[in-house]
Amino acid sequence: MGGKEISLEKLRQRDTRRVAALFLAPVAILMAIYVIYPIIDTFITSTYQWNGISAGKKFIGIGNWKTLLADSSFWIAFRNNLVIMVLSICIQIPIGLALATFLDFGGKKLTVFKVIWFIPLLMSSVAIGFLFTYALATNGGLVSTISGWFGGGNVDLLGNPKTALLTVIMVICWQFTPFYMVYFMAAFTNIPYDVFEAARIDGATRGQYFWKIAFPLLVPSMKSAAILSMVGSLKYFDLIYVMTGGGPGTSTELMATYMYKQSFSTFNMGYGSAVAGGMFILISMVSLITMKLLNGKEEA
């Protein structure tokens, strides 16, 4: 009997593995074709001097990578990505949490604000880029017009290297803060209502409930939101490319826009692939370090 039970158990495990493999196969195939293969091919292409069009490729080994390590424009783009990452986390998550808290405490009577505040996230980044490009135009733009009402001159926010990056960051935060608002609203629903009622019965104010009870329970969601914001910030492209094209100069240049220019503007596909590979490595490193720092205490 014991032998039969063991064999039946092994049979069940084998059938489970077969079913799991059957259901995972389509996903694995798609991942291999659209994720793993492009990454491998990018690193292979980075070892060639190639314009991306002609059939002829010249193998140069790690020549493109040596150029990348000494390329100040790439490291400026990486620095700009880090600035966007830090400011996005510091702006989007607190504001998103504040909006979610306001809506959670307000109940159904504030539903209209949910709709209004969610609108920016429904718009495409390209459309938002064009919208703010015209709104922030030096001549006739919204900011310049308001400045003129008070006797000031035209304000060039996107054409000034000192203000261009911060201006773009504000637009990014305007678009994506509603995502974190909805994210934290979902996190609030995971807190049992009995906890809120118990706190109110014990005499806690709404502020005390938030800071002493709700906020500690929301910390795991805040960590996840920070990771999402960080990864997204390191691969921005469309909105910035539409608004500034990486200019003026390199003030808003990002790794993605720099990679695009090298690959499709100057037709240096080999070096553009090296930039993409460097971007992949740096994003992976920053992501792993950040997740380690955020989850380090929990693992300990």
Rank of each mutant, 00 (worst) to 15 (best):
S233H: 12
I39F: 14
F267I: 07
A98V: 10
I29F: 01
C173D: 03
V19W: 09
L110W: 06
I33Y: 09
A164L: 14
L288D: 08
L8I: 08
G232I: 09
F113C: 01
L234Q: 12
V126I: 15
L136M: 02
N190Y: 03
W117V: 01
L293S: 06
M1N: 05
N81M: 04
P178E: 00
L157K: 06
K223F: 03
S88I: 03
G249L: 08
G129M: 01
V19M: 09
F267Y: 14
M255L: 15
G141N: 06
P216E: 03
F102P: 07
M185W: 05
G159D: 05
I39Q: 14
Y48R: 06
M285K: 12
T145Q: 12
T257S: 12
I33S: 08
N190L: 05
R12Y: 14
T16P: 10
I91W: 04
Y209F: 10
E197P: 08
I172A: 00
K235F: 07
L293G: 06
K109F: 15
Q92P: 06
I201L: 07
M1I: 07
M170E: 05
I281V: 07
L288W: 08
W149A: 03
T138I: 15
I95C: 01
V19L: 07
Q262T: 12
Y134H: 10
Y260A: 11
P248A: 10
T111H: 12
T257I: 13
I93N: 02
F184C: 06
M279L: 14
L234T: 11
T45N: 15
A25F: 09
A20P: 04
I6E: 11
I84C: 07
T266R: 13
G277T: 13
I84P: 06
Q13L: 14
K108V: 15
V242C: 00
F102Y: 09
I128E: 01
A187R: 02
W117E: 03
L157C: 11
G152V: 05
D15A: 15
A20K: 05
T244E: 10
L11C: 11
T252R: 00
L11H: 12
Q49F: 14
I213P: 14
G96W: 01
F23V: 02
Q49E: 15
P26C: 03
G52A: 08
L131T: 01
